[in-house]
Design a protein around this nucleic acid. Sequence first.
DNA 1: AAGTGGTCTAGACCACAGT
DNA 2: CTGTGGTCTAGACCACTTG
Lengths: 243, 243
Amino acid sequence: MNKNIYLHIYNDYSARIQSGQLPAGKKLPSESELAEAYGTSRETVRKALLMLSQNGYIHKIKGKGSFVLDTQRMNFPVSGLVSFKEVSKNLGRSVRTIVYENGCVPSTSEEERRLQMKEPGPLWKVVRAREIDGEKIILDKDYFLTSYVPSLTAETAGNSIYAYLEGELHLTISYAKKEISVEEATPEDKLLLDLHDYQHIVVVRNYVHLVDTKLFQYTESRHRLDKFQFVDFARRAQSESDL
Amino acid sequence: MNKNIYLHIYNDYSARIQSGQLPAGKKLPSESELAEAYGTSRETVRKALLMLSQNGYIHKIKGKGSFVLDTQRMNFPVSGLVSFKEVSKNLGRSVRTIVYENGCVPSTSEEERRLQMKEPGPLWKVVRAREIDGEKIILDKDYFLTSYVPSLTAETAGNSIYAYLEGELHLTISYAKKEISVEEATPEDKLLLDLHDYQHIVVVRNYVHLVDTKLFQYTESRHRLDKFQFVDFARRAQSESDL
DNA sequence: AAGTGGTCTAGACCACAGT
DNA sequence: CTGTGGTCTAGACCACTTG
């Protein structure tokens, strides 16, 4: 068992910090001590600590040590890909998913542009509303290239599509670009969501790429203004030329 | 000259990729080749490639190599700290800064909460509007703990505060938490910005920490709805327990 | 001076791609 | 089989912090 020791260390400490077992400000063992404790080398420990640092769990200070950050106040480090992050900020609420549409459709010109399609073709389209505490707050519109995702069952659409893509189809998602903007609410928004009198809506566009760098999914997540929140944790760049 | 070789490699390649000299899809030399070319070891090369990958410049595929990503379409990798990122999405526009307020004020209870102050005290407060193409689009409200920033000149407030903090005061910014939400426009927003008839405003709250993990600055950036855009580049997490 | 993290080395073995 | 990136090792020297 000498594989992915750094992930093991990372999981150990991220769990202990998230659970509050290690409180904010607490000093971690030194890198040498951790190396010995896990029976590994210092560089491997450093790899785990780098990840903890980049994900907002700890903070390293040269000459002093590594310290637990206040993750409670941080909510949690976002900038992630995982689908429901924006929603599940406050857990312990009743969440329900309503599937409005789930099937294969011909592409529109806008969808071709979003998915960088060279010519019109079929798309798998899923439209779902997320209901929280009895109000339909979020409209999720997902588009998949049929070459990767031939079809989705209604049951899958009602649950986590990501789990299906990775677990069943073995598609490996690699990276994504996310754009957040505010736009005028469309008639569709007003029809499918409980928008009250809001005239605008927060649009989160997600362009999802596979390991072969191919764009395979485009997702539009449309949030009611008052319920939207996005949290981002950012470290200062080390390089000068990074703008 | 054997220090920060990995930064050197990173700067070389990020520059070449941003300039378009290395086009999207181009394969980089292998890690061994790069190690020899730069007269260093493979692990050092890997450190540079990891940074390039995390900042959205390249993409690594096991068994195949490292490939340049389409950074044009990416706009640029955000999740940064640099102040004007949200604004400067489209460059080449006339941008002007109007300083409304720049001085020391007693703290309000909300400000004490934002800055985690235990008791009331003086704050350095800067209020500025950003005018783009003749319209005041963004209202920036910055608060600094006077223990770190005793004062700012009007000239500094008109330019980049960050450059002053790091260059002159030698404060090293380490990390920040950013929160994006949409709120009702205040009378102050309507007075100081060209809001048209928009009743809501996008609020970006920034909590900035120094290397000693102390929170020293709180910034509120209030954007007119229609001009707001946030772009984020996210890599898929390697760990399972990351939610 | 002792302890800490930051950087670097020169190897090694593995898993995966392509031939 | 060869070449690629992914992981790991057991050292080394440096810069910084603290006593």
